[in-house]
Design a protein around this nucleic acid. Structure first.
Lengths: 229, 229
DNA sequence: GCGCTTCATTGATCTGAGTCAAAGACTTTG
DNA sequence: CAAAGTCTTTGACTCAGATCAATGAAGCGC
């Protein structure tokens, strides 16, 4: 169980407001602070929208087409905010990739109570905008890129987002499996594996173990990703 | 040129605030009100993000992978708000599907001046959330659905969004070409055409001319779209 | 209303990624 | 540390949708 103090860190770190203030206390009443073990699904209320803060760990947001077809719609890491819609045409679930601490709010109530605080709303807006822009890039990849371009894009994006320490953003420890990468890129596990082999053969990446990836030539990788120069 | 009064309609209709108030006047200074003829690209500042209000008409937001590969990331209709990022790995452009009136703001400045007004921020948040949820559904379709499911989904979504008058939301006048539909669904124009033929043969839709589509059996269509029952 | 242009449909063939199958590598656990 | 289980890699074959090519409508200008 994560320290209940993760709520304070959340409010101060993400929104820059004091947990002890009026808004801070009003929001606290809504928060459900839980820890989710690797491979488990976050217990969300699927009849209403949720807003989830990833206190620590990492998660995948999965959209379910039918029984056995899943599309990972986004990955999230410590510090991220995730908005999850109520189930309608499609169902969504949030699964932990590693043991994760989450703070779960009912979305509507959170917005109602937060709307008095301009700094919170401004941060929410920025986060949502970033999520939207990322999702559009993903749509571009899924609709118009081939397998190699998708994997190259993916690796560069992860390098950027996982660049927490001073690893020079070239050595990645991917928290997700090949299957997850496939489910995110709209490809199969075998295709992911084949594309890794090709990138390896071309000297653009090195891999060791199941999660370690070294980007040997990020520039060439960006070209293969179909990025603008 | 659209009546400059479209700005007033925008503020009152979308945000419910008075254009004559302090915030209304501050935002007015940022607005660029223009009309864009069918087939033309909105003149945006691509070094900064933009926020565009579609006063009337309809547009497509296009992401450019490389030279000849385009992915339509979203369609927008009168009353919609569109956030467009500055160019980075990919470039975006907003093109009018029919003669359209737009109100263009520099995004950052708009948010800065609007953040004092909770009602505006709340509406923005809702709109962004809706856009994000739509984009995720699109990602699911592009990643995991076959051609027929994609087209069926598309038609149902359009029926919902174009349901302006009392046409029972079953008779559509699509403002976009087969090519646009293809560019939106990650398919070719020929595949779109073939899928229309199949749906027609199955008695689920009727088409007449280039833009008229009648949904004869929305329930069966929803099944083919891979929606949850 | 007639020719021109653009868009949509249909058919034949090709191909990149999926599927099926098997072997090999990494982790975990007793 | 060896056995078991899981994840990854590689190969052979298949198939949905792309590509190439031709014909058939719609819409538009004169």
């Amino acid at each position: 169980m994560p320290a209940s103090g993760s709520y304070d860190i959340f409010l101060r770190g993400t929104f820059g407001i004091e947990p002890g203030g009026a808004t801070g206390r009003k929001l606290r009443e809504l928060a459900k602070i839980i820890s989710v073990p690797r491979g488990s699904i976050a217990p969300l209320d699927h009849t209403h929208g949720s807003l989830v803060f990833i206190a620590d760990g990492s998660t995948k947001l999965v959209a379910h087409a039918s029984h056995d077809r899943e599309q990972i719609v986004a990955f999230h890491f410590g510090g991220d905010l995730v908005a999850i819609p109520p189930d309608s045409e499609h169902a969504f679930s949030l699964m932990a990739l590693k043991d994760s601490g989450l703070i779960i709010f009912p979305a509507r109530e959170f917005y109602d109570r937060a709307s008095a605080e301009p700094t919170i709303m401004r941060v929410l807006l920025d986060r949502f905008q970033t999520a939207l822009f990322r999702c559009r890039d993903k749509a571009l990849g899924l609709g118009r890129k081939n397998a190699q371009e998708r994997l190259a894009s993916f690796l560069l994006t992860m390098a950027e987002r996982l660049d927490n320490d001073a690893n020079g953003c070239r050595v990645l420890d991917l928290p997700m499996s090949r299957r997850d990468i496939g489910d995110s890129l709209g490809l199969t596990i075998e295709t992911i594996s084949r594309q890794f082999s090709e990138l390896r053969a071309a000297g653009l990446v090195e891999t060791s173990g199941r999660s370690r990836v070294v980007l040997k030539d990020p520039v060439a990788l960006a070209q293969r990703a179909g990025h603008l120069q």
